[in-house]
């Protein structure tokens, strides 16, 4: 088996005349926190959906730990989509049961502790929660899995700066160094401190794939500064 947890070869996805992901070829190694960075509509979410088999590629392929997206890869991947997938009628305990039923690597205690820190009760109904709280619950569920690959799509997109810190702390606190996190966002300044590697994506193409240290060494700039330079309108 390859040491890369995620491998893409010439991965392309088109929607009619629009090419959302354009011939992406890349390897993401095991045990790193990778930022998938790009402006809105650059293809970040499409790329993560392709990795989760929620979209079918137009051409090329993606492999996770050597598996094509499917049953095996779903066991290894913990995915946080950019939208809420929680059923409003559910209570927190219902959604915890669902995760525990289907994911053997789901750690109920870990989820319980994190919910307690946020004063969210197991009997709380999701429909009574604000959007931000729901996003936090969703992140807690995703990070309570002991997965090999976490694919987090805009985890800090819709929350206030204080909540962003909480979310980043949750990610770091639950991060197993053997696992890999791919985190997509356009809010670079907030997450730069946790990134080890960054991938810049523009109009569906990978335009940069380097470690944070190398970027600082070569350009003398922070990732945020380089991002602003590369994606200047």
């Amino acid at each position: 088996m390859s040491s890369a947890i995620l491998e893409c070869s010439n991965l392309t996805k088109t929607f009619g005349a629009v090419t959302a992901v354009d011939g992406v070829t890349l390897d993401i190694p095991c045990g790193s926190i990778v930022g998938l960075l790009g402006p809105n509509a650059s293809g970040k979410s499409t790329f993560l959906k392709l990795c989760n088999k929620l979209l079918s590629p137009t051409s090329g392929e993606v492999r996770i730990a050597g598996y094509k997206p499917g049953m095996e890869s779903k066991r290894l991947v913990s995915y946080l989509p950019e939208r809420s997938y929680l059923n409003d009628w559910m209570k927190v305990c219902d959604i915890i049961d669902l995760f525990a039923d289907f994911y053997p690597d789901f750690n109920k205690d870990k989820a319980g502790n994190m919910l307690q820190k946020l004063n969210i009760k197991r009997s709380d109904r999701l429909k009574t929660m604000s959007r931000g709280t729901k996003e936090k619950v969703q992140l807690i569920l995703v990070m309570s899995r002991e997965a090999q690959l976490y694919l987090l799509d805009e985890p800090i997109g819709g929350v206030d700066p204080a909540a962003r810190d909480f979310i980043l702390d949750v990610i770091l606190a639950n991060y197993d160094p053997a696992a890999t996190i791919v985190l997509s966002t356009h809010l670079i300044a907030d997450i730069e401190r946790i990134l080890e590697q960054v991938i810049f994506i523009k109009e569906g193409r990978i335009i940069l794939n380097k470690t944070v240290d190398k970027i600082r060494e070569e350009s003398g700039k922070s990732v945020d500064a380089l991002f602003r330079e590369v994606f200047r309108c």
């Binding site: 929620l54 049953m71 066991r75 989509p81 997938y85």
Partner: peptide, 9 residues
Amino acid sequence: GYLMLTLPV
């Protein structure tokens, strides 16, 4: 579907 279709089922 983002939840259901990513379950290992």
